[in-house]
């Protein structure tokens, strides 16, 4: 595409080229190059120092605590006074007959949340992006992201009230529509639980999650839309061929990052909505750790589970990143 020539731009570009030329003459590798680069970017480096320190203190130092997973850790004893347990804690974790069920629940809810979360957030963002009435758009956006600020305790209360057998709005509506004859005990049937969690999660976070896609859409060059319109592209075509490809890099990056959290299917929602009748489908890894680890003062088991989670997340993260690379998409690192 031919672009109008702007004299100032041309000048700038030339200047930049000159600089590049200068750089080209120097070696691009070796410690010398490294130090020169550092000097050039010293402001940036200084700015990143506090965060590196933070990262080190809060993310790397605690890794030393992983040792606990191989001990029968008792608080307030010195390191040498601890009793070594080898892989006992891992054996207890993986050997538990409920482990498979718990992993199933964790992965199922996680994947449901991931897929539902992506699809709904992208859809909402696309729809909002198409709106021409700014006021209406603002209102919808505000209303849809408000629930993000509610704590899960409140949301769980709302959900269980809505699903209640007497006077719950869901049952009332379905009864009046004639879809069901008797009220359904939604929270009393295990098979519904994943759906309930997925739906409440969407309600709570769809607006918030769509913000980042909306932001990505504003980066798309408006001229492309104009050009497409002149070429006779319909609205759907414009969405399909311009908007979606435009936000693809963001989607891929977020997907990779979220796949790293695949074992984090959430804790509060399940914990608060769980009851004796749906627990077979509600208990996930975090709840299991709380029950058998933290609340029984078995910190070693909790650490072992945490370690397991980190390693799985690590594998998933790298796997997803590699796949994205293979597919020629944007990637995280």
């Amino acid at each position: 595409m031919a672009q109008p020539v702007n004299p100032i731009q041309v000048k700038e570009r030339l200047k930049y080229k000159d600089k590049q030329k200068v750089n080209l003459q120097r070696p691009k590798k070796g410690p010398k190059y490294f130090f020169r680069k550092c000097k050039e970017q010293k402001e940036l480096l200084w700015m990143s120092v506090p965060f590196l320190i933070w990262l080190f203190i809060f993310k790397y130092l605690p890794l030393g605590g992983w040792v606990m997973a191989f001990q029968n850790f008792r608080p307030a004893r010195g390191f040498l006074d601890q009793e070594w347990a080898g892989f006992d804690n891992f054996r207890f974790l993986f050997g538990s007959e409920r482990f498979l069920e718990i992993m199933r629940n964790t992965l199922a809810m996680s994947i449901i949340n991931l897929v539902l979360g992506f699809v709904t957030a992208v859809t909402l963002a696309v729809l909002l992006n198409e709106l021409r009435n700014i006021t209406f758009k603002r209102i919808v956006q505000t209303i849809s992201y408000m629930p993000h600020f509610l704590s899960w305790v409140v949301v769980a209360g709302l959900v269980s009230t809505a699903l209640s057998m007497d006077d719950g709005i869901i049952n009332t509506v379905l009864l009046n529509l004639g879809i069901i004859d008797t009220p359904v005990m939604w929270l009393g049937v295990g098979h519904y639980f994943w759906g309930i969690i997925g739906a409440s999660d969407v309600w709570k976070s769809v607006g918030w999650n769509s913000i980042i896609y909306l932001a990505a859409m504003t980066m798309i060059d408006q001229e492309q839309y104009e050009a497409a319109e002149i070429d006779g592209a319909s609205r759907m075509q414009r969405i399909w061929y311009i908007t979606l490809p435009g936000i693809k890099p963001v989607v891929v990056i977020l997907l990779i990052m979220n796949i790293g959290y695949i074992l984090e299917s959430g804790f509060e929602a399940q914990y608060l909505l769980m009851n004796s009748m749906n627990m077979d489908f509600a208990e996930n890894l975090d709840i299991y750790v709380l029950r058998y680890g933290i609340s029984m003062a078995n910190f070693s088991l909790a650490t072992a589970a945490g370690m397991f989670k980190t390693i799985i997340s690590f594998i998933f993260l790298f796997g997803a990143n590699k796949i994205a690379e293979k597919l020629g998409e944007a990637r995280l690192f």
Binding site: G157, S160, S164, M165, M185, G188, L272, N275, S276, M277
Partner: peptide
């Protein structure tokens, strides 16, 4: 009341 197994304390 079947909800006895489902309700939380507040309900």
């Amino acid at each position: 009341d079947q909800e006895m197994f489902v309700m939380n304390n507040d309900d």
